Lab assay of single mutants.
Amino acid sequence: LVRYRTISKIPQITLNFVDLKGDPFLASPTSDREIIAPKIKERTHNVTEKVTQVLSLGADVLPEYKLQAPRIHRWTILHYSPFKAVWDWLILLLVIYTAVFTPYSAAFLLKETEEGPPATECGYACQPLAVVDLIVDIMFIVDILINFRTTYVNANEEVVSHPGRIAVHYFKGWFLIDMVAAIPFDLLIFGSGSEELIGLLKTARLLRLVRVARKLDRYSEYGAAVLFLLMCTFALIAHWLACIWYAIGNMEQPHMDSRIGWLHNLGDQIGKPYNSSGLGGPSIKDKYVTALYFTFSSLTSVGFGNVSPNTNSEKIFSICVMLIGSLMYASIFGNVSAIIQRLYSGTARYHTQMLRVREFIRFHQIPNPLRQRLEEYFQHAWSYTNGIDMNAVLKGFPECLQADICLHLNRSLLQHCKPFRGATKGCLRALAMKFKTTHAPPGDTLVHAGDLLTALYFISRGSIEILRGDVVVAILGKNDIFGEPLNLYARPGKSNGDVRALTYCDLHKIHR
């Protein structure tokens, strides 16, 4: 019993810090008490220290592992850092350059016999395009090294910054494609005289377009951006097909006994025919423009016929181009109408809503002055909100995010209106959640004399007048207030005048 009563005193000691020596009952000389009392004092002292730490809000209350900052290894790049964003855009520009100039170089340097010394005699450094290609190869190699040090988000939505895990993730992902696209074939085969082989191998750079397509997928929600990307894709495919079309004609031209190829026909049409040795002929500019003209006309199913396939190889390629053109029509131009419709969806919704308003007016036989006010209010409210119901949009977000959005939407009023000066951010967040926005066209009466005042109004834009009878008592403008002081009276009061809008007004109100 003594032991039980001794232990039962522990909660009292913990909360009230009572010393055991003052209790005459606990001072009985028993061996059990002498053993338990020192333990009680020690526990009391420890609990006292913990309570003191909690009340003082000291940093040592938290466990040590929670006080440590997340460790980022040296030379690790955050995937959302500004440097990584700028670097990704730079790589994107280099990939676009590669997609345009690599097929052009591979096709127009394929057994090209233009006048001038061969590239091997001039030297590697004197070729501007080769120098640019070398810079692109170096940048792609540097990009691989950067990807080995860039964080990523795993399946659990955690940012991984450990170098080993980053390397394994990159090896399992895009490393092989990036490595093949970054191989400097110019340096590996330079001086061997195989410019045709170098041009063909350099087309491996186009593998990076797969990554670019995935990154550009984030802009699919913007109709104008999608339309622009589709047109660029169409032009890029036409450019690639033009390079292939020229390569076919250029390879067949020296081996044909009869002059029936499209390059021969082009030379005869523009007065620059090929001679018996295969030299001469149109310039590279004429060849490229004509090839691009043929691919565009074939892809769009126009086909004027002034550039036509004559050999079997050219006919087979033309059939493939027609098939590609039909697929592009289905996948690209078939979506253009939907994209344009999405661009004008706001206008369509406006006309639909206006039609419903006019049908309501016609069905209920609203008189002319009231009908005009109804239409003007709808037009003004639509121009202010673009038909978007803010309350319906915010309803799907958590309250903390709703408060931040409301604070942002009402920031101008909260910053410049005098009653809100000096208020804490928590108070402003709470008030912003209570605001209701209303609009009024010129001549609209917001409050009639004798109406119950259940709200306090803040003028965000425009001006109003307060009338008693036919006498203008006051004219209020931006950041002015009218209405009933909230919670100042037990019952809502009545208006002693009319409140009429002089201009288009936007008002925020808080109800009782």
Results as ranks from 00 to 15, higher is better:
residue 260 I to N: 07
residue 279 L to E: 12
residue 446 L to F: 09
residue 73 H to G: 14
residue 288 Y to G: 01
residue 72 I to K: 15
residue 239 H to D: 01
residue 229 L to H: 03
residue 125 A to N: 04
residue 273 P to H: 01
residue 72 I to A: 14
residue 210 V to R: 14
residue 138 I to E: 01
residue 243 C to K: 01
residue 334 G to L: 03
residue 97 Y to H: 01
residue 375 E to D: 04
residue 122 C to S: 01
residue 338 A to N: 03
residue 76 T to P: 01
residue 360 F to M: 04
residue 376 E to M: 06
residue 406 C to E: 01
residue 94 L to Q: 15
residue 175 F to R: 01
residue 195 E to S: 14
residue 379 Q to K: 11
residue 363 F to G: 01
residue 177 I to G: 01
residue 351 H to R: 08
residue 92 L to Y: 04
residue 112 E to A: 12
residue 146 I to M: 03
residue 331 S to Y: 09
residue 205 R to Q: 01
residue 121 E to V: 15
residue 267 G to C: 04
residue 201 L to W: 01
residue 274 Y to M: 01
residue 91 I to E: 01
residue 294 F to Y: 03
residue 170 Y to E: 01
residue 340 I to W: 09
residue 332 I to Y: 06
residue 220 S to V: 09
residue 366 I to H: 01
residue 282 P to K: 02
residue 206 L to N: 01
residue 416 H to V: 06
residue 342 R to H: 14
residue 72 I to Y: 14
residue 372 Q to N: 06
residue 296 F to T: 05
residue 370 L to V: 01
residue 87 W to S: 01
residue 166 I to M: 13
residue 163 P to K: 01
residue 237 I to P: 01
residue 425 K to R: 09
residue 161 S to W: 06
residue 144 I to D: 01
residue 214 R to F: 01
residue 392 A to R: 10
residue 207 L to D: 01
residue 293 Y to L: 05
residue 232 C to D: 01
residue 132 V to S: 03
residue 393 V to R: 02
residue 226 V to M: 13
residue 267 G to Y: 01
residue 79 H to A: 01
residue 274 Y to P: 01
residue 113 T to R: 08
residue 330 A to S: 01
residue 370 L to E: 01
residue 76 T to A: 05
residue 185 F to N: 04
residue 353 Q to L: 07
residue 174 W to P: 04
residue 393 V to P: 03
residue 386 N to M: 10
residue 340 I to K: 03
residue 69 A to Q: 05
residue 332 I to S: 03
residue 194 S to C: 14
residue 342 R to M: 07
residue 177 I to H: 01
residue 425 K to T: 15
residue 261 G to K: 01
residue 136 V to T: 06
residue 355 L to E: 11
residue 430 A to R: 09
residue 261 G to R: 01
residue 135 I to W: 03
residue 235 A to W: 01
residue 393 V to W: 08
residue 345 S to A: 09
residue 273 P to D: 01
residue 288 Y to F: 01
residue 380 H to W: 15
residue 198 I to L: 13
residue 298 S to A: 14
residue 420 F to E: 01
residue 238 A to C: 03
residue 379 Q to N: 04
residue 121 E to S: 14
residue 375 E to P: 01
residue 223 G to Q: 06
residue 382 W to N: 08
residue 404 D to S: 03
residue 143 D to N: 03
residue 65 Y to Q: 14
residue 306 N to H: 01
residue 163 P to F: 06
residue 99 A to S: 03
residue 111 K to M: 11
residue 357 V to D: 01
residue 114 E to Q: 15
residue 436 K to M: 11
residue 226 V to S: 15
residue 108 F to L: 01
residue 285 K to C: 08
residue 93 L to A: 11
residue 107 A to E: 01
residue 311 T to L: 01
residue 443 G to K: 03
residue 131 V to H: 01
residue 289 V to G: 01
residue 329 Y to V: 09
residue 396 G to Y: 05
residue 180 V to N: 01
residue 365 Q to M: 04
residue 283 S to H: 01
residue 119 A to D: 01
residue 357 V to K: 03
residue 339 I to M: 04
residue 326 S to M: 14
residue 342 R to G: 10
residue 297 S to A: 03
residue 131 V to R: 01
residue 305 G to L: 01
residue 330 A to H: 15
residue 254 P to G: 12
residue 248 I to M: 01
residue 302 V to H: 08
residue 386 N to Y: 07
residue 373 R to A: 04
residue 332 I to N: 06
residue 137 D to M: 01
residue 259 R to I: 03
residue 277 S to L: 05
residue 406 C to V: 05
residue 397 F to Q: 01
